[in-house]
Amino acid sequence: MQEIKFRKWLEDKGYDTGTVKSRIYNCQRICEFEGNIDHHYEIDKCKTLLPKLEYSTDDERNGLPARHNIPINGVIRTGTATFKQALKLYISFLVEGNSKAIGLTPLTNTFDQSDTSKVKEATAIDSYALFLHHFNIDNTDFYNFGIKNTIFANITIANTQWESLKNKLVSNQQLAIRGYGRQGINTALYLELYEYLFNNNKIIQDPTNNNAPRRNIQSATGYAINKNIFNYQCSHVFGKTKNPLLFEAVWNICLIPKMYDPLTGHETTGDWPREFQGLFHKYVFEYFKAFIDDFNNFILSHNIESRINHFVTKFLTKYDSKLLMNFKEDALSEWAMIK
């Protein structure tokens, strides 16, 4: 999101200070929960994003959930309309900006001049490589900068919280997990699993799929996204977000600069994420080694692997077999030891 330019555009249009701040905040929330608006605009001019911000009086009357993932404290229809209005303003800003853009030559591929339907196979390129080469940045310096500026929890705070999480799990207290399946349709499988494994029937699906991690890392570090820290992403280091311990444990959560977040997950491929993840995980392994060892011991002491297998084969005959096999594989991955 082009916050500075958007702010100036709004001011030039005559919007007062309060409205400018509100519209920028609205767009930041859209970016946070639905992805960067600039990217949506590049892909399809926000044609996929805009319908998510539709919410009619009939939807309200029928008690339907919002189509978007943005948390709203209040009336869904009113809040959604506010986000849609802000998005339309930002789209107008982008349209005007693009119409004035000059002097940029896009990357294109060559083709056979005698037959324009035959495009030659393009030479492989990587946007990270292009960026670093253009600004003459060494890849090791780039990786180290990302790790150095990632924010982790203090060891003492992480330890206190970790012990509390383990106690909650085995004493039937509430913990959260991320939804499983499209729109969380199969989350009940994990809820049943945890009732079987730990006699805990108070595990819930996180309402935004990121509320508990953000709350926990804010409590552990003092940093709140878009309040006193900007262009950072709340990210899980080792994934395992359907595991209630690792979904909430601050030693598995960090605040990472947004430009590096794609390198930590499956969104990017190639040498860059592989190299960065190797260095990143090595750093976390060393910093949080005691917690990783304890998590691995927890798995062994509770005989998790064999009990997941038993649960799937004996207790879930009512479910589709293909779904069960996928769930079994996923559940074992969620509770696999970190090595």
Rank of each mutant, 00 (worst) to 15 (best):
Y283D: 09
P106K: 06
F33G: 10
G265K: 06
W335F: 03
F145Y: 12
F295H: 02
Y90L: 08
I24L: 09
K240Q: 04
Y41S: 04
W162C: 11
R182D: 14
E275C: 14
F291I: 02
R274C: 04
F230H: 10
E34M: 00
S117Q: 12
I125R: 14
L191T: 02
R182Y: 15
L255A: 03
H236V: 10
W251E: 07
N36Q: 07
N252T: 03
I137S: 08
T208V: 00
Y143E: 04
S164I: 05
P71K: 12
M337W: 00
P244V: 06
N201V: 09
L132H: 13
W272R: 15
N36E: 08
L300I: 15
V20W: 00
K202T: 04
Y260D: 10
N136F: 11
R214I: 02
S22W: 12
I292E: 05
F311G: 05
R214M: 07
Q173R: 06
T80L: 02
G146F: 02
L332V: 01
E329P: 11
G63Y: 09
T268R: 15
Y232R: 10
N62Q: 12
T17Q: 11
L279A: 05
F93A: 07
F111H: 13
G239Q: 09
N231G: 11
N210P: 01
T268N: 15
H236S: 06
K118W: 06
P257G: 08
E192Q: 13
D112T: 10
P257Y: 08
N210G: 12
F145I: 06
I229Q: 14
T19V: 10
E54Q: 13
D59A: 05
A249P: 07
R214F: 06
N216Q: 07
L300H: 13
K322R: 07
T82K: 14
D16H: 12
E305S: 12
I185D: 11
Y25E: 11
P213L: 02
V119K: 14
K118H: 10
K318S: 06
K118Q: 00
T317V: 13
E60V: 06
E121R: 05
Y25R: 15
G239R: 12
N201K: 12
C254G: 02
N136G: 07
F6R: 07
L323T: 08
E11G: 05
D38E: 10
K339E: 08
L132N: 13
R215S: 00
I308L: 04
R61A: 05
M337P: 12
